[in-house]
Design a protein around this nucleic acid. Structure first.
Lengths: 147, 147
DNA sequence: TGCAAATGTTAAGTTAGCTTGAGGTTGTTG
DNA sequence: CAACAACCTCAAGCTAACTTAACATTTGCA
């Protein structure tokens, strides 16, 4: 409860590299919360720097704000998270990353087959041709890449 | 030059799963080109099905339309691409995929370290703390993840 | 040949993720 | 204790990537 644990939005912005407006936007979206001073200015926990950093990491991994909100919903609000809190969240992000790597790897493998065969020039190319019944009117690709 | 090599926008839409409006949009953006009938209707090459399929694949890989345009700029316009044309383009996409996998893998590795150490709770966490000189006003993370 | 289905154009709307602007208030510091 | 930087709110604007609407024209086929 040290005075140092309470920071302004500007401080948060400077420490994370985010714009003040972006932080306000995230608060509006429920990704972060704050207290107010008597004069209605926002005051955050110093640990919110980490929370925002995590949001930035997750964004780079391609998660949408709602997805990120879900991921950090395990963190306590209004209180500095413990190491254990953070570990839980990190692990869930790791799962997301794993999934994305898997998708990319799978696609790359298919693409390799196509490079070898003159990609996408044939109906049997593994990158295309997923839903053949829908292609009743004739041969050719329709949807691309299954998942 | 068979009559069958010329298709309407509706056919293209049905064969790729794209909306007609999306195809028109792509044309406007220069991702695909067409001829016009006497009555001003668009007519595409049958091989444009593949072109659109490729665009869809690249989009799933996270490329923006301008990036995709760049990638397929090697393909001939107004003429059915050869196997070699396609191979060149596929290989360039493969490069993109490789890069993205590498970024994700690198991040995952860093995240693993953080999970072990109580992620992002310390100034020395590898996921944070990139530009320390900018943090002159105090310790703590500022930018997240280098690249 | 006639008419429904397909197309064409232009303009405005949609979602995500923020930024910018206007006009007004608070906090801090010399 | 005044000045000025930092905040506040609310509304509107912005980019990407399309969709929807409204209305006009063209095709294809019975």
């Amino acid at each position: 409860m040290d005075k140092n644990d309470i920071v302004s939005i500007g401080t948060l912005a400077r420490r994370t590299g985010l714009a003040v407006s972006a932080i306000r936007f995230y608060e509006e979206k429920g990704l972060i919360t704050s207290q107010r001073t008597a004069g209605n200015q926002r005051r955050f926990l110093r640990s919110d720097i980490r929370r925002l950093s995590f949001i930035l990491i997750a964004q780079r991994m391609g998660l949408s704000l709602p997805e990120i909100e879900e991921a950090i919903s395990w963190l306590p609000t209004g209180r500095t998270p413990t190491v254990t809190d953070w570990q839980r969240v990190s692990r869930s992000l790791r799962g997301e990353i794993d999934a994305r790597i898997k998708l990319l790897t799978r696609t790359r493998a298919k693409l390799d087959e196509c490079i070898g065969c003159g990609c996408m020039s044939l109906q049997r190319c593994p990158l295309t041709n997923r839903d053949d019944r829908a292609a009743a009117a004739g041969p050719g690709p329709r949807y691309v890449l299954d998942d």
